[in-house]
Write a protein that binds this DNA or RNA. Structure first.
Length: 606
RNA sequence: GCCGAUGUGGCUCAGUGGUAGAGCACUCGAUUCGUAAUCGAGCGGUCGUGGGUUCAAAUCCCACCAUCGGCUCCA
């Protein structure tokens, strides 16, 4: 249905996350058991594994010879309703480890046996549904299945999932479901999911004509339309200005380089499989790994520029910056919209600093990143200290270098008193990071900005500077990208604004709507006048009626519309209508121009 | 890469074995119009691609490609 008015406002229904509600925890634990029991009733060959709650519902992983279908979900739901109606008491029982083992062996559930081995404490708790079904579970649970409301439960989707999240292990069938206290809550949850779909950047990107993907070009390789390119370059210009103020030096480097460059940096050894295959002239070259590859990162290039001359301590910190487009061969199943692509542009910079400058320079970078987020009105992010996993061998460099780098990041975060959490195992292979994590419309998390402290690449590339007094010393590198990826940032921004960009970012800042053809010459002249002030103005010359032109502008989410009729021509004025506030009445052309320029300069509304 | 679903004109979708449909968009004509759709006509599709089954395939089967939901991965 198409409606011109805002949806009717009903009293808001509070939807807590599972972690915030004891009641939902019980409901979802119990619902998950009921679902597992239903599945085993209908699919006797299904083995149960785990079935935890998640923030908006729960899932359960089964090992079943056949994947479940949509039809199966309906049948399972029906069976669950029956179980609920049987009013089975949920009984908690404590047993010894041996007892638990015996019982599991008796019902031949091999996955459960593995789970039992992981449970450290004793006694082991078991929850029964009447005397018909039981599962190892820590609880808590409802007291009776009848406390579940079958009308407030929905089985949402099936998906493959690896046992223990390990791709070398068996692939299980996961059923995602949700359960609430009341059907009204379920309806509200579904409404919000649909709402989220409306702001999905893939949908809006198509509707607003910002970017496309083309089959002949290839997956994960976005093409930017004129409107999308305005967005991109506006963001680029904005950051370039900020960087200019902070002493960054622009550089430009090529898209490809010899394999050797990445052998020296370590990328080839670690990420060969994730790079586009090398371009080799002969099969012999290919066999010897001689050739050129698309760059997966910019750092080795910037390092070459640093190395091209003998550097003095007087030149440091040296901040080399570039919007560098990189190419990574992401797994096919991982691609999605603009958030995960195979070619993307990093607002990259590499800072070469003395060890003494490190702390201050790190703080400068974080300050820049926070300034950028503030200007973009991005508030909903979390800062993650991405450190190495001591148990993994995927890193290069000495423990000492890592310790130094990690403590530098920790010091900076403490100095700033910034909210943060630690992500062990989230570090880059050459160093720890401070990452800024955002959510998309579907509540999936993505890394945007990042700052990394690196003692290791300077070592690998034998970087030096001449210190005061003449001694050769090794600089420290900071890798940083406030946007992270321009593509991903734009994806997040589209969803954050739901397509309603602030004026300074909007591809079209004002559209003139002439009431009849009579006003077209005047409107054309006004458009030219506004454009001469760097305002992105355009004219609707469709010849449609006013109502239709407004409708089109609204659908395209044009923030400021200017109606031009006979009266306006007479008064050298524009009747302004904004998406946000509706009709504002007639304003002199000069004032409209002035207000637009102010809004643009201050990242504000009209 | 793995599991599952989906793929019909530019867009949104209908069409489950018998000569390809609708709305919007686009083009043309009429209308010159004041804050979310003026009326009429026309153009447009080898039904993702390639094989197969059949007298006959958008529809059934196989493979591949792409997209979506997950899993795994993410320098």
């Amino acid at each position: 249905m198409v409606s011109s008015s805002a949806p009717p406002q009903s009293p808001p229904i509070h939807l807590p996350k599972t972690s915030e509600s004891e009641s939902l925890k019980k409901i979802r634990h119990t619902a998950s058991h009921v679902m597992a029991m239903a599945v085993q009733k209908l699919f006797p060959k299904a083995q149960v594994t785990i079935g935890p709650w998640i923030e908006n519902g729960f899932y359960y992983d089964f090992d079943n010879p056949e994947p479940f279908t949509e039809k199966d979900l309906k049948a399972i739901k029906k069976e669950m309703t029956k179980i609920i109606q049987r009013k089975l008491p949920v009984i908690r029982e404590e047993v010894s480890r041996d007892e638990a083992k015996q019982r599991i062996t008796a019902i031949q559930e091999s996955y459960k046996l593995e789970i039992l081995e992981d449970i450290k404490q004793e006694p082991i708790t078991i929850y029964h549904l009447g005397d018909l079904w039981w599962d190892l579970c820590a609880g808590p649970h409802l007291e009776n299945t009848a406390e579940l409301n079958a009308e407030a439960i929905e089985l949402e989707s099936v998906a493959g999932a690896y046992w223990r999240g390990d791709e070398t292990k068996a692939q299980l069938q996961r059923i995602y479901a949700t359960a609430w206290e009341t059907p009204e809550q379920l309806a509200e949850y579904k409404r919000r999911k649909e709402e989220a779909l409306r702001r999905d950047h893939r949908k809006l990107g198509k509707e607003l004509g910002l970017f496309i993907f083309a089959d002949p070009v290839g997956p994960g390789l976005p093409l930017w339309t004129p409107k999308g390119t305005v967005l991109r370059s506006t963001l680029e210009d904005f950051l370039k200005q900020e960087q200019l103020k902070r002493g960054y030096l622009p550089v430009v480097t090529p898209h490809i380089a010899r394999v050797d460059l990445f052998k020296q940096s370590g990328h080839w050894q670690k990420y060969k499989e994730d790079m586009f295959p090398a371009m080799a002239e002969t099969e012999e070259d290919r066999a010897n790994e001689i050739g050129f590859v698309m760059k997966p990162m910019n750092c080795p290039f910037h390092i070459q520029i640093y190395k091209s001359e003998l550097r003095s301590y007087r030149e440091l910190p040296m901040r080399l910056a570039e919007f560098g487009t990189v190419y990574r061969y992401e797994q096919s199943g991982e691609l999605g919209g603009l958030t995960r692509v195979r070619g993307f542009t990093v607002d990259d910079s590499h800072l070469f600093v003395t060890p003494e400058q490190l702390d201050a320079e790190f703080l400068n970078v974080v300050d820049l990143i926070l300034t950028v987020f503030k200007s973009l009105q991005l508030k909903n992010f979390r800062a993650r200290l991405s450190f190495r996993d001591p148990a993994s061998d995927k890193y290069i460099g000495s423990d000492e270098a890592w310790d130094k780098a990690e403590s530098a990041i920790r010091r900076a975060v403490e100095t700033l008193g910034m909210n943060h959490f630690e992500g062990i195992g989230e570090a880059a292979f050459y160093g720890p990071k401070l990452d800024f994590i955002f959510q998309d419309a579907l509540e999936r998390e993505w890394q945007l900005g990042t700052v990394q402290v690196d003692y290791i690449l300077p070592e690998r590339f034998d970087l030096e500077y001449v210190a005061e007094g003449g001694a050769r010393q090794r600089p420290v590198m900071i890798h940083r990208a406030p946007f992270g990826s321009l593509e991903r940032l734009i994806g997040i921004l589209i969803e954050e604004y739901a397509g309603d960009f602030p004026i300074w970012l909007a591809p079209v800042q004002i559209r003139l709507l002439p009431v009849t053809e009579e006003q077209v010459p005047f409107a054309r002249q006004v458009v030219e006048q506004l454009r001469s002030h760097q305002i992105r103005a355009e004219l609707d010359h469709s010849g449609e009626r006013l109502g239709k032109m407004i409708r089109n502008a609204e659908k395209e989410k044009i923030a400021v519309m200017a109606v031009v009729g006979a009266k306006e021509v007479e008064a050298n004025a524009l009747s302004i209508r904004t998406r946000a506030s509706g009709e504002l009445g007639a304003l002199p052309v000069a004032e409209v121009s002035q207000r637009l320029r102010l809004a643009i300069a201050q990242y504000a509304d009209f």
